[in-house]
Design a protein around this nucleic acid. Sequence first.
DNA 1: GATGAATGAGAATTCATTCAT
DNA 2: TATGAATGAATTCTCATTCAT
Lengths: 214, 214, 214, 214
Amino acid sequence: MQSTTKKTEERRLEIIKTAEKLFKENGYRNTPIDAIIKEMGVAKGTYYYYFKSKEDVLAAIVEYQLNLIVQTVEQIANDTSLDALTKMRLLLSGSHIGDEDTGEIVEQLHLPVNRELHEVTNIQTVLRLSPIFAKIVEQGNRENVFNTRYPLETIQFLLTGGQFLLDGGLFNFSKQEIIDRRLAMQEIVEKALGAEPRTFDFMNNKLFEEENNE
Amino acid sequence: MQSTTKKTEERRLEIIKTAEKLFKENGYRNTPIDAIIKEMGVAKGTYYYYFKSKEDVLAAIVEYQLNLIVQTVEQIANDTSLDALTKMRLLLSGSHIGDEDTGEIVEQLHLPVNRELHEVTNIQTVLRLSPIFAKIVEQGNRENVFNTRYPLETIQFLLTGGQFLLDGGLFNFSKQEIIDRRLAMQEIVEKALGAEPRTFDFMNNKLFEEENNE
Amino acid sequence: MQSTTKKTEERRLEIIKTAEKLFKENGYRNTPIDAIIKEMGVAKGTYYYYFKSKEDVLAAIVEYQLNLIVQTVEQIANDTSLDALTKMRLLLSGSHIGDEDTGEIVEQLHLPVNRELHEVTNIQTVLRLSPIFAKIVEQGNRENVFNTRYPLETIQFLLTGGQFLLDGGLFNFSKQEIIDRRLAMQEIVEKALGAEPRTFDFMNNKLFEEENNE
Amino acid sequence: MQSTTKKTEERRLEIIKTAEKLFKENGYRNTPIDAIIKEMGVAKGTYYYYFKSKEDVLAAIVEYQLNLIVQTVEQIANDTSLDALTKMRLLLSGSHIGDEDTGEIVEQLHLPVNRELHEVTNIQTVLRLSPIFAKIVEQGNRENVFNTRYPLETIQFLLTGGQFLLDGGLFNFSKQEIIDRRLAMQEIVEKALGAEPRTFDFMNNKLFEEENNE
DNA sequence: GATGAATGAGAATTCATTCAT
DNA sequence: TATGAATGAATTCTCATTCAT
């Protein structure tokens, strides 16, 4: 057995990771497959042994990322011991213990990725997370901490605004501008969900600390 | 050979229009310049006589569209005879008398464009329209019909959500799904701006009619 | 009639001068006709009214330059009041009173021009100047200051070496390297022509001053 | 692995050879890459698999040719059993046992190449050969067969004159004209190096035979 | 004399994909 | 599993030249 031979799953993951890194650095279109294999030190054929096209990795990357996020979000959402407010706070703060890969949820959602990768990811993220979030909102409605007429649609709008506006990749906001927009977003979220003012105050406290660390 | 010489500005616009059409149909990346010139029935050199690259038309298209929208929005925003509520309603309904080119504002904002074109347009739209809208919100604050702490940031969030979520190019929503999301959006806008419930009720009545016509 | 003809001639010359300048700056191949007309502020058609192709100006430039040089060189060569040594010294030093256009002969010969323009010019220069120089050498033979068996061929070899080696455009020599090569060249010229050592000593004194001025 | 590597080297050389041939026939600028690959019967991508641009082959051709020449010249120059006169004669006559690839040195130096290729080759040839020749001249100085004050500079001038003047690519001399110029050159070389008259007599005898064979 | 819009035949380069080994 | 040479369609961009006005 060759020492260069890795287990199939491992190698597949290695390609995904390498491609993801390069796509984020240079963009999907601007990253030839050559770049990926060169970075990995393998031959062209190896790539095509694991993926049948270039789009194929893109899909795999998105799927991989999404699964991680969805898994974490679902875990929290399905935890019957938590009330809606706690769940929502956990998800919005990302303060739970994340896997290395996942990192903090909010971070994941706001990762500055490039456009091509972004499009697919953002949309899929909104579409897959919104039903899960919607359930929490409905729970919140029942627990009288939220008051939202259209849980799914509202959550989708809020996720979309957050994803696209605050994602560093699209708008080139300064740190201060991001802070300002998060403050506004906090209020909008609270109002849209019909929560008490300052319910999600922590969002920006947290942000503040983060930004100072960089 | 014989050349159908047109006035420079006309031909430039013709290229812009043709490119826009094809970009919307097939996407920016999937539209070779050859397709544009073939559609127009001119030579390749003609294209490069007016635009020095492919990106150049993209920028021209966005600029052209944006100028139309911004112009109209600004006209309403600067009309001192109108109160904030009327202005906002006009802008959100698009019921003003539009130029042929402009069409209805809401339609403009929600034009189903493809991704590549979209990205640039959406972002620019949000960035250029938000300050104008923000002024109206501030006027509304003074007139006690709105109550918004962060006018600019709030408007930016709302515009972003609207643009990216309801723009047919990104999410493939059915008509009914769009209606549902507009209903939710109406409420979110009202709440975020601190307006009375049902202030922007017309948004969806109007939409309803439209959709039935198609 | 006269004045229009003169104006025509003027414009032709203007094109030649502009083209020459741009060709020297950016090279013949890298200078589109567009650049020439843009620099002049005239239309494309104007160019083609005066020259039927791009090569046409190149030929005109070379012809124009060459005529100036040949004229001056011939004037000195044909001056029956001068002995061969004086003539040769004059030509090699370039110390005669030159027209503005011509500048100093040596300077003309060593003008750092680009390759494309260079090729044609250099070769033509060698071919047209060598017979004139050869006559001076023959005169020198008769006057017993030179002793050259093959005047024309020798002169051609020397002109070629000087043109191509010392012309700043081809070899990227430093100032010191050029000085060294001129010293060597002086000796070679003296030896090749069979002149007394140090006959053309001034060549390098002169050069030395020049270089210090820059 | 080694066999494939060797094949790779072979193919690379094949491209170099084909390009060289076509460049010589039609000129660098007038030889599209299409012509090269068509001649070889390979696809465009194959070319770009081995060379990253068109200029790239040009550089490779020059490097290849130059290495062959330099190698041979160096071999002779470094042979401690030979005196300077013999070395110089060998190099100028090209009568040594040449590799098939190299052919005769003088032939190599005077290969009728086209302009674009020529420029680069000529200059590089002069620059790389002159130090080697200069050593022989210095040896000759010590052996009292030469008497040259500036060995390097003198050699450079002589090489330049020979390359550019006698290289069939630039000046369109007839055979007789070339013979005449070689005769003159022989004398110039002898004088410039301070060698005895007729030291390099063979140069032209040899040439004479050659020319009659064609 | 002068204009400048229009032409269109190239040219170089990219890169996803295939396949024999 | 892995390799890497070979492919070739696709695409952007250049620019000398023409000609109706």
